[in-house]
């Protein structure tokens, strides 16, 4: 062995596992956060519905609070959180 790795300093970018790049409610990219937050990350998490649509948690909560029926704003199916 002529060469051996001793140290490795590397970089990874984390992304949401979303099937779209924008939130269907606030239309901001998932790389950012909802319109009420400033910092993307655990403070402004994403949630996935059983219908497979995905939103900022803050956005879907606001949306549901203003609706009588608990339906997904994208596909109008009943909104249910997908359990992991």
């Amino acid at each position: 062995m002529k060469v051996k790795i001793k140290g490795w300093n590397t970089v990874a970018v984390w992304k949401w596992l979303a099937n779209d790049d924008k939130c269907g409610i606030c239309r901001a990219p998932f790389d950012g956060c909802c319109s009420d937050c400033k910092v993307p990350g655990d403070d402004c998490p994403l949630v996935w519905g059983v219908c497979s649509h995905c939103f900022h948690m803050h956005c879907i909560m606001k949306w549901l609070a203003a609706q009588q029926n608990q339906i997904c704003p994208m596909c109008r199916q009943d909104w249910q959180l997908k359990s992991e």
């Binding site: 060469v3 051996k4 490795w8 590397t10 970089v11 596992l17 992991e84």
Partner: peptide, 25 residues
């Protein structure tokens, strides 16, 4: 390890920014 702590995410590795310390003979 990472995804166990942060669910709903994925990691994208960036090899262009990697640095190594090599032992060479």
């Amino acid at each position: 390890f990472y995804l166990g702590k942060h669910s709903g995410r994925k990691l994208q590795w960036q090899p262009t920014l990697g640095q190594c310390m090599l032992k060479a003979i």
